[in-house]
Structures are given as C-alpha cells and as structure tokens.
Design a protein around this nucleic acid. Structure first.
Length: 1024
RNA sequence: GCUCGAGUGGUGGAAUUGGUAGACACGUUGGACUUAAAAUCCAAUGGACAUUAGUCCGUGCGGGUUCAAGUCCCGCCUCGAGUACCA
C-alpha cells in the first residue's frame, strides 16, 4: 500500500478544520501555554519556503505541548495595514482593502496546505475596524495619561490636573517637554481652557508637538528611526531629510530605563537584547550649563550641554551647537550672521544619506558669541557644526579637543586651541579618549585625580555653582506616531480651536473614509484630506460627509493615520479574547493566558516592533490592564532561508576596430589626431548574444580564440553589425573606410536564470529560458563537452527579483506538507541562516515512506501491526528516541530530532519490528513534526480521537540499561581499537582486561605504559 | 570604527560536562531488481600512502594547558549580522 500523502494531507486538513481540533479554550483545568508567531504582512508575492520556517518550529512546539497536556493557544492573524498595499492602490486605483483581502486569502490557502495547528477562530487583522477600534482605544488611554517619575509609572491625567489645581506644577516630577514653565495653582486656575490644554499636551504620553522628523518626500510621509536604513527609507530606499513638522509622538523615552532593566529577566537571544540595549543607549554623565556672554540688558541666557566626561571640563576650548539648535539665531552676532545662516541652510538641505556618507569632512561656522567657562570664567567661543546632532542630549556639546577625537578634528580644522589636561600624554596629533589611563592635570581642583574621582568632584563643584548635575541620558527618542498615508488606523481625534480632542470611546471605531486618490494631496495634506468631507459631528457623535466645518458642532478630524507598528503592539493580547466587543479583552482571558510563553519571529524587528510592543505592554501594565510588564517570556529568532540562485554567463567582449582609410580629409586628420598614417583605432565594449555554461566561463582570450574559432568569427560579425560603421556620422565617409575588428579581452556577466528552469543536475531548460527572456531569444548557448548547459549557483536572499523563489505549494504538491515540514527543520539549527536546496527534500520524503512502510509490511498487503512483546532492541530504539526527541524539543534543536527519527525508523525496519507497543508511541513522537501521516497511522491503529492530544510517551530508563560497553581504547589519545567489556567492571578490572588484551600488546610492542587512564563508561587511554 | 555571531568532507550539518571527529541526509560511484525507466534495496564515500594488515595527516591560522582539545586559554586571519559623528 503506497503512501498517498496528497489524499492523507487533504483529508486531515479538512478533518481538523471541521472538528475544530485546535480551538483553545479560555477556561481549562490544564496548564496554559501560549505559542505565538509574528503575524505576517500579507504581501502580493505570497509565501516562499523561507517564510514558514518559524511557523513550522512553533507549530511543532505547540503540538508537542498539547501532547504534554497543556491547553495551548496558538493563533495567527495578519498585520494588514501598510505601505505596499497603498503603493499598489496608487498605481492601480484598486482599494487597499480589496488587494489586502485577496492577499490574505492567498496566504491562508498556502498556510492551510502546510498543516498548521492554528486556532483560526481567533484570527485578527490590524486593518479590520473591529480590531483597530482597540488600537484607537489604546491611543485614547495614552492621551489620557502622563508619566510620574516619583511613582515611576504612567498615571491618569486627571490626577495631574487635580495637582495643578491644588499646587500648580511645583513638585510634579513628570517625564514631559523640557520647556514647561512653572506655574502656581492660582495661575493654573486663571488660564483659559486652551492654555490649560496646551500645557497638558506637554505631559501626555502621546502628544502633538513640532518636532524634527525624518521626512521622506518620495513616500510622502515621515518615518520613524527604525524605518530608516543607512540614511534611506527601509521601503524603497528613498532619500530622507530632517524637517520640522507638527506630529503625534509617543513618549517611549519615559520608559527607557524600564525597557532596559527588564531585558535582564527575558529569555530572548543575546544579540537581540544587545541591539535593544544599544538602541536605548543609556549613558551616564553630567549636564552643565554655560552662561552666554555678555549678560546684556538683564537677559541671562544659558546653554545646556550633556557630557559623559565632566572630568575634562578644564579642557574645554570651544562649544559646538547643532546647526538646528534654537539658540543659534539668537546668539549669532551681526558680523557672523551671513556665514552662520548660509551654513545652517546648507546643512538643512543635506539628506541623511549625504551626511552619513560624508562623515570625515569637518564643517562648521563661528557664531561670534561666547559663553563663560563655569570655573575659569574665561570666554569660550561658540561654534556650530553638523557633527553635533540636534536630537541627542541638548544638541550642544562642550568641546574638549584633547579628549575627544571629533572635537580634536574640529579644532585642528578651524585652528582652535587644544589645551592639554592629561598628565604625560601627547595630544598634538590625536585626542586621548582612554578613560582609565588618564590622570587629570592643568585642571585646578581636579589635578592629580583619576577619571572616576575626577568625575565625582567635577559634578559636586558644578552643583555648588548651580551650573550642573549628574545626569543620565538616553539615545532612545520619542517615536513619531503620525504618517501622511491612507492605509493605516485613523486617529480618534478631532480639533476644536486647534486643540486635539479625543472622540469618546463609545463611538469607536472611527472608520477610514472612502477616497478616490491615495496619494497625499498637492498641498502636502495626507490622503484623508481627499475625502469629500472628513469631519466630526460632535452633536451626533459620528463622522459626517458633505457637512461644513462650522467650528460649533462640526469639527475637523485628524488627517494623519497611525504607523505600521501601532496594530502590532498589542495583538498578542487581543488573541486572548479577539471577538470581545466591549473590552480590549476580558479580565478572565488575560488572567488566564497572562503572557506569551514562546514567541518566534525574525530578528529584523529588534528595534521596531519588539521595542514598541514592550512599551505598550508596560503602559497597559501601569494602567492595571495586563498582569505582566513584559509580554513574551521567551523569544527565538528563526534564521533566514536563503535561495540558491542560478546563473548563465553572458560573454562580454572588449574589441578594437581598425579603420583603414583610403583617403582622408584635413578635417578627419584634425578630428582624430591622425598622424598621416591611414589607420584609425577605436576601442569598444559590448555584451554579446552568447551565453556560456558555468564551467566554460573561466577562459581567457587566447584560449577563447583557440577553442572557439567559429564563435570568434560570429562575434566579430555581430560586432560589425551593431557598431557604428565609422568614427564619424558622415555617411559618405563610410565608404572611405575599410573596417576590421579584433577581439582584445573577454569577460562574463552572470545573468539570473529562474530556478524553475533548472533541474536537479543544474541543467538549464534553454528553450524555457529563451521564452522567458525574449532579449535572448536568438542567443547561442555554449554547452559543456557532454552537450549539457549548466547554470552556476550562488546563495542569495530568496527574492522575486533574483528568480530563486521556491514556493511551498509546489513542494507540498510534489512531496507533501509533512515532507516540507520535516525538511525545513532538518536543514539546520532554527536560528541559523541556511540555503534552500530542493534536491535534498528526497531525504525527508524517503523517511516518511519508510515510516509508512513500517506500518504496512505485514504478510498481506495493507496496514499491519502485531501484538505481543517487542524485542529488547526495539524497546531500546524507541526509548532512546523518546529521550532524544524530548531533550531536542526542549532545546529547540529540531534538526537533530529529525535525524533521530530517521535513525529510529532505520533501526526498527532492520529489526523487522511490527509491534503495536512500539509503533503506537512512535506515531505520537513523530506527530508534532509530521502531523498528517501520524493522524492517518493513528486512525489505522484503531483510534477515533485525534492524535493531537494523545499523551506523549514516557521515557523509561530501564530499556537503555546496557550490560556491556564497547570501550574505545586509545594510545596517547588516539583511538586504536574497540573492546567490548561488561558494564559493571571497576576501573581496576577494566585496566586489567585492557592490558591483558592481545591487541593492546601489539600496540605497545613490548613497551611498558607510563600511565593508564580509565574513565568508566567512556574511554581508556594508555600513555606510553 | 564599535558590538555581537560564525569558520568542521563535494554540500546542509552532527558531536552530552574536554573523552571514538564527520551522526543523519543530499550528492557521487558501483551493484541488485527491471525489456527499460521510475521506485526500492545493498555497498563504498574526509585526504594521502599501502595488495592486505595498517600508517600518517585532518575541525580557519599560530601557540599553549591536558593522559586526552572541534570543545578550554592567548594571539591572529576570514566571513556574516547589527549599529554608526550618541558628546
């Protein structure tokens, strides 16, 4: 009876769906286990074999946990808002909701074929109004909260208002805008409502503020820092510049310290934690304020700087501000104004990418202003320079050229003094930035102190002056939360007198309006401005169309939408109770499921999704809505499956054309610098129409001429056909030339061939290739000596543009989902990146056939297991496998457990084991990996219930007890032979037995060993 | 530049706490079955030398510790990932 995987897989996928086998209950006596995958963005390209890798691993784990008696939550959904759907809409006019729906259906079809045990009844889609209702709801909660540094958590804004009414903002320690001015209770109460709202906005956890943003004009939107890679947009690679715009921001910076601290307790990959630590970028130092000179008409200005080296304060010889620093315009002297303004303008125009590409060149300008050194009271010149970043610290630095290389470069370039404050160090050519090697000198009260002490003393002295204090600074900046896009969550916000108002949660969701154009409007307004009327009727509490904004009952709505990460920052909680219309999730559900036990996804989300999601989780935790401050206990980054691209090699040729002139004019002589000789030469280069097989491409011009004389002739002919006939465009002159071509140099350009046209022996279907690339329709394929045309191979990222995509559907069709699952796991360690090679799948497929045969090789055709007692050998094989598989799953070492299955089946087959006592537990062991075949065998074994919840076989050590051990006997550490000895011998007995052995005597050749090492149960080493 | 991670056969990769290097699979070669192919099964497969027995070499390179090193220590090399003027 053959293993008909198509029938079996289709049958069980249908059965599971009908029976609701994997539906998780929110109430259970069994312990809970939550296994989560990062939900995909449903792109138009569909899945390739790299995508399901993590899903397969998590599915194995989820199935294993079900066998172990857990109530498993294993949901799946779609992160379905985002740029590509919208870009597609702009190009084709198709509504993103429609293309998204199509893509989701395709994804679902592909996922279903792989046999995942997802509980689809809990599916969420971020673009579904029933879902984004809650994204909007959380936004409202954030708006209604402020961060209290004293309690170190987010609190309701009402409490803050009460405090203002009672005591003003004195003694309020909030994480908020730096430019909040102090006010008393009396002042607060006398402020207008709008003034009060303006002040409160500076405290809220999400706030509207004019900030420096990353503006990408090609995408027509702002981008978050993690959406920019190497100075260009992550999507599309468009240039990005810094620009001031009024935007919604999220005060993630309030949580910087907690986000850092709580990493400690997470079982996440170290590289991922490192990159979050890096991104948060905590640094300890001091803030120092410098007074701006002179103190005219009583107006005293100071410039704040942050430094990690307050100990070097006596080395300050100038100060540098970021060109965007707000004081630049105010302190620049009339004399320097023109230069400074020109510099500021020039830097503002530069894109991020230009700036990054140009790190080495030093630029800047002198403002003409001076500040006073806090200790020496000497004037310090103030410069601006773009090496100082506006967004970090205060956007100003105290420049210590002897201790900081960038300051040193700047000083050298502009000829500024470089005072030395280190004992016995030469700083004339290079700054001395080694903290621990330094003893401070020329620094008044810091003289003779080492780094750490000097820092302490300097801070203490600054505090005495009231001009500084110890400070911790973070690199992490607040996250810009608005996007000028259509396909995202609308804000639940309308504006009254220019101040943002939250729509009452009872009226959510605020649904996206229909628009005709998805591009931002000409005026730079977001696409929602394209809706005929997109306004809020505050009387009837609804979005209205075709009504005039009157500022009384009809108000303008926020036109921006939320960024992609909004919907993904809490979806793991929503899965717990996805259809709850009255709450984000019920108390019962969240208290039962608590948090994610295992989260699997890509490492590219390290500083985006995974940081934002932790932030929102902490916020919900502060508000008492979730019981855990971290949402995922354990996280694994699956590696990438790379593609194996195929190449053909196009012959390129460098050639010389010789023009022999029968007669030539004075003009030609001049134009081509002819020296009176009747010849002119011109070099040329072109790609030919000849495609070479891979092993032929390592050939030089001499060999080429020798090996392919006819080809060279053709090539010359080809060149003659397509090059201009004469070095001038005078038609009449052509006849005066005799043209000949000599090939001079050849090279090969690799050209992608679609892997679909390549068989397992790397041979290319040249007909299919020609049809696919019409520009090579007339190309000549130069084959190997055996007549085959072979492609070259190279490992690259799997992508459509590289024509190396292998789809899971084609694998499922040819080998089955179980084969795909096994093979993906078998490829190598989960976390590692590894190349896909379709040829290898026969190994996994062959294993499944052998497994099937194990249950089908009785006396008659068909299913067969026997009763009775299996051999000791078979018991040993089974229990060794149970043990191995359990430890492997525990270590997420799925590749090694697949090989242990292979070993097990190979052994059982050679033992001719047909015993139910062995084959029944074996089916369960294999079931997490290859669920379809296991279900089928389980049913054939006579079970009516699904195998999914069958208890995992218990390991029993008694089956592995050995009566003897085959000892490797080594001499000076080199294994020479093996010796079977009883397992219960003492070391002395082992030694005696080994020394008495014939082979030992041969090895020793009469010498007496110096020492014999016996490790019972392991090895014997004879040192001679 | 900085921070991580990794280098093992033709290929993907195994190797418990320092204890038989190369499990398992792909590929290759040879054989059986077959009219033939597919499928299946059997055997060989790190390199060199050797008729066999066997010997020597071998986990990126150079040292070291140890009875014993892919594994531990020191110094390099190469590749990959992340980050990048963070004061």
């Amino acid at each position: 009876m053959i293993y008909d995987f198509r029938k079996i897989e289709e049958k069980w996928q249908r059965e599971w769906a009908q029976r609701g086998t994997f539906k998780a209950e929110n109430h259970s006596d069994r312990p809970k286990f939550y296994v989560l995958d990062m939900f995909p963005y449903p792109s138009g390209a569909g899945l390739h074999v790299g995508h399901p890798l993590g899903y397969i691993a998590s599915d194995i784990y989820a199935r294993y946990k079900r066998h172990k008696g857990f109530n498993v939550l294993h949901p799946m959904g779609y992160d379905s808002f985002g740029l590509p759907a919208e870009q597609y809409a702009i190009q084709t006019g198709q509504h993103p909701a429609i293309t998204t729906e199509t893509n989701i259906n395709r994804y679902r079809e592909q996922l279903d074929r792989i046999g995942f045990s997802f509980d689809w009844s809990r599916e969420v889609r971020t673009s579904d109004p029933e879902y984004y209702k809650w994204t909007q709801w959380i936004f409202i909660q954030l708006f209604g909260s402020w961060y209290n540094k004293d309690s170190d958590r987010a609190e309701d804004i009402e409490g803050l208002i009460a405090h203002f009414e009672r005591d003003g903002n004195e003694n309020v320690h909030a994480v908020c805008d730096a430019d909040v001015v102090p006010f008393s209770a009396g002042e607060w109460n006398s402020f207008t409502a709008i003034e009060q709202q303006e002040i409160l906005l500076k405290y809220r956890l999400t706030y509207l503020a004019e900030t420096e943003v990353n503006w990408c004009s090609a995408l027509g939107t702002v981008l978050a820092n993690d959406e920019i890679v190497n100075g260009v947009s992550e999507r599309g690679g468009h240039p990005v510049i810094r620009k001031k715009m009024t935007q919604w921001s999220m005060r993630i910076s309030a949580y910087a310290q907690r986000l850092l601290d709580d990493l400690q307790g997470l079982d996440w990959p170290q590289p991922l934690k490192d990159s979050q630590t890096n991104w948060i970028g905590r640094s300890e130092g001091a803030s120092v304020s410098f007074k701006v000179l002179p103190f005219t008409n009583g107006e005293e200005r100071t410039i704040e700087v942050f430094t990690t080296r307050p100990d070097t304060i006596f080395g300050v010889s100038f100060m540098t501000l970021a060109p965007e620093h707000e004081l630049v315009a105010k302190i620049t002297t009339a004399q320097q104004r023109a230069e400074v303004e020109a510099y500021v303008e020039a830097t503002a125009k530069r894109s991020e990418r230009d700036r990054m590409a140009d790190v080495k060149s030093v630029t800047g300008a002198f403002t003409g202003a001076y500040v006073e050194h806090p200790f020496t009271k000497k004037p310090v010149p103030v410069w601006i320079g773009d090496y100082v970043l506006a967004g970090y610290g205060t956007g100003a630095v105290m420049s210590v050229p002897c201790g900081d290389q960038r300051d040193h470069d700047f000083a050298t370039h502009f000829n500024l003094p470089i005072p030395n404050i280190f004992e016995g160090v030469d700083v004339s050519t290079e700054a001395f930035s080694d903290k621990d090697g330094a003893v401070i000198a020329n620094s008044d009260f810091l003289n003779g102190l080492p780094y750490k002490k000097a820092v302490k003393v300097a801070i203490a002295e600054l505090e005495k002056l009231g001009q500084g204090m110890g400070k911790v600074n973070f690199r992490l900046r607040d996250a810009v939360f608005s996007r000028q896009r259509y396909w995202g969550e609308p804000f639940p916000v309308f504006y009254v007198d220019g101040m943002p108002q939250m729509i009452d949660p009872s009226h959510l969701p605020v649904k996206l309006p229909e628009v005709e154009k998805y591009l931002p409007t000409e005026t730079g307004e977001p696409p929602l401005g394209n809706a005929t009327v997109w306004a809020w009727d505050s009387e009837n509490n609804k979005v209205v169309e075709n009504a005039l904004i009157d500022g009384k009952t009809i108000f303008p709505l926020e036109l921006n939408t939320m960024p992609g990460w909004a919907g993904s920052s809490f979806y793991f909680n929503r899965y717990m109770d996805p259809h709850n219309d009255g709450e984000l999730f019920s108390k019962d559900a969240i208290n039962y499921w608590q948090d994610v036990d295992l989260y699997i996804g890509g490492s590219e989300h390290a500083t985006g999704h995974l940081l934002y999601a932790r932030f929102w989780q902490k916020f919900l935790f502060d508000k008492g809505m979730v019981p855990r401050g971290e949402f995922a206990k354990k996280l694994i980054n699956q590696g990438m499956i790379t593609g194996t691209s195929a190449f053909v090699y196009r012959l390129n040729v460098k050639f010389v054309i010789k023009y022999t002139l029968s007669s030539f004019s004075e003009r030609l002589v001049q134009q081509y610098n002819l020296t009176g000789v009747g010849e002119a030469f011109q070099d040329g280069e072109l790609g030919s129409n000849f495609l070479f097989s891979r092993d032929l491409k390592d050939i030089d011009i001499l060999k080429f001429k020798e090996n392919y004389p006819q080809l060279e002739e053709k090539l010359v002919k080809y060149i003659l056909e397509i090059i201009p006939k004469a070095p001038i465009d005078n038609i009449e002159a052509i006849n005066q030339f005799n043209v000949s071509v000599t090939t001079k140099e050849i090279s090969f350009t690799p050209i992608h061939a679609d892997v679909l046209f390549v068989n397992s022996s790397d041979e290319l279907d040249t007909k299919a290739f020609k049809k696919w690339r019409p520009e090579y329709a007339n190309a000549e394929f130069i084959t190997e000596s055996d007549g085959s045309f072979k492609v070259g191979r190279e490992v690259e990222k799997m992508s459509k543009s590289k024509y190396n995509v292998v789809s899971p559907d084609s694998i499922c069709a040819e080998y089955g989902a179980d084969s795909l699952r096994l093979y993906e796991m078998f490829l190598g360690p989960l976390e590692q990146s590894k190349p896909w090679n379709t040829a290898g799948i026969t190994g996994a497929h062959g294993f499944l056939k052998k497994l099937w045969r194990l249950y089908h090789s009785g006396p008659a055709d068909g299913f067969y297991v026997s009763a009775g007692e299996p051999s000791a050998e078979s018991w040993k094989t089974l229990h060794r496998t149970i043990k191995k598989v359990e430890t492997d799953i525990g270590n997420f070492s799925f590749n090694t457990s697949v090989s242990s299955f292979m070993i097990c089946v190979n052994e059982l087959a050679s033992q001719k084991c047909h015993h139910r006592a062995i084959l029944e537990p074996l089916a369960i062991l294999v079931s997490p990996y290859a669920p379809h075949i296991s279900e089928e065998l389980w049913q054939l074994l006579g079970h009516t219930e699904s195998i999914a919840t069958a208890p995992f076989p218990l390991f029993e050590g008694k089956y592995l007890v050995e009566s003897s051990k085959e000892y490797p006997i080594s001499f000076n550490g080199k294994m020479r032979f093996k010796l079977e000895l009883p397992a219960d011998l003492s070391p002395a007995e082992i030694e005696a037995a080994v020394m008495a052995n014939e082979q030992t005597l041969v090895q020793l050749g009469g010498r007496t060993p110096k020492k014999v090492i016996v490790v019972p149960g392991k090895i014997v080493n004879i040192v001679g």
